[in-house]
Amino acid sequence: MGKTALVVGATGLIGRELVEQLLESDRYDAVWIVVRRSKRWSHPKLHEVVGFEEMDSSLPQIDDVYCALGTTIAVAGSQEAFKQVDLELPLEVARVAKAHGATRYAVVSAQGASLRSSFFYNRVKGELENALRIFNFHHLIIARPSLLLGERDSFRLGEKAAEVISRPFQSFLLEKTPEVAPIQALHVARALIMASEEGEGIEVLTSGMMQRMSR
């Protein structure tokens, strides 16, 4: 029997890549997603739970969790609303998944995540990383990507501007400074899935590491 994966943040940039790659993987017999509204995606291995409040009662036994939840303060509307999506929900997912048997949790954090960061965004990501350690998953994988590249459903002016400006230098950045080079969302997803094949303890994937894993 293959494994069962849970993906949260499945409609986002990295989340969509995770779902697509997991459905193609022979390692998983079932892929579950938790969404706010039904996506009605059709695939024999794909199952959905509508509403995070339904997770505990609706999910089966889970092996691996992939958490790609994330927003911006501008989209969320306030710092508290941002923390609800980027901190509280991932921790609730960890609690429920652990109760359903999950032993591995792979989460998308951010480059510069730290409890001591002067930037609110990075402090929240650092708080998430720190809090997830308390759950004592057999394998906790923390991905810290740099600027993400890919086709988003929503337009983010700052990220789009940075992508356009950096585009002529991407090859140079990848060769000379892979840690700060923009990274494709599909490469982050691929690296998380590769890291989930084996391992234990706490594993941190820097942006440069994920760039090299995807070559």
Score class of each variant (00 low, 15 high):
M1Q: 13
G2F: 15
G2D: 14
L6N: 04
V8A: 13
G9N: 09
G9H: 02
L13A: 07
E20Y: 14
L22H: 06
L22R: 11
E24P: 11
Y28E: 00
W32Y: 02
I33N: 08
I33E: 09
V34E: 04
R40N: 14
W41Q: 12
S42P: 13
S42C: 15
P44L: 08
E48C: 08
E48F: 06
F52H: 11
E53A: 10
E54I: 12
D56P: 07
S58A: 11
S58D: 05
S58Q: 05
L59M: 04
Q61F: 13
I62A: 09
I62E: 09
D63W: 15
D63Q: 09
D64F: 11
Y66K: 02
Y66E: 07
A68G: 10
T71V: 08
T71W: 07
T72L: 03
I73A: 10
A74V: 13
A81S: 11
K83D: 00
V85M: 05
V85W: 06
D86T: 11
D86W: 07
L87K: 09
E88G: 15
E88R: 15
E92T: 10
V93H: 04
A94E: 03
R95C: 07
R95D: 03
R95N: 05
V96I: 12
V96S: 08
V96D: 10
K98A: 07
H100Y: 07
G101C: 02
A102K: 05
A102S: 05
T103W: 15
R104H: 10
R104V: 02
Y105V: 00
S109H: 04
S109G: 05
A110W: 12
A113P: 01
A113Q: 05
S118D: 14
F119Y: 15
N122S: 12
R123H: 11
V124T: 09
V124G: 00
E129D: 11
N130P: 09
A131R: 10
A131N: 07
F137A: 00
H138C: 13
L140Q: 05
L140F: 11
I142N: 01
R144H: 07
P145I: 12
G150Y: 00
E151F: 13
G158S: 06
G158R: 02
E159G: 08
K160C: 15
K160R: 15
K160E: 15
A161P: 02
V164P: 03
I165M: 02
R167T: 14
P168L: 06
P168E: 01
F169E: 01
F172C: 09
L173Y: 06
P178D: 07
A181E: 06
A181F: 10
A185Q: 02
L186N: 15
H187E: 04
A189N: 04
R190G: 12
A191G: 04
A191R: 00
L192M: 08
I193A: 02
I193W: 08
E197K: 09
E198T: 08
E198I: 01
E198N: 14
E200I: 01
G201R: 05
I202N: 10
V204F: 11
M209K: 14
Q211A: 10
R212Q: 11
M213A: 03
M213Y: 09
S214H: 01
R215T: 12
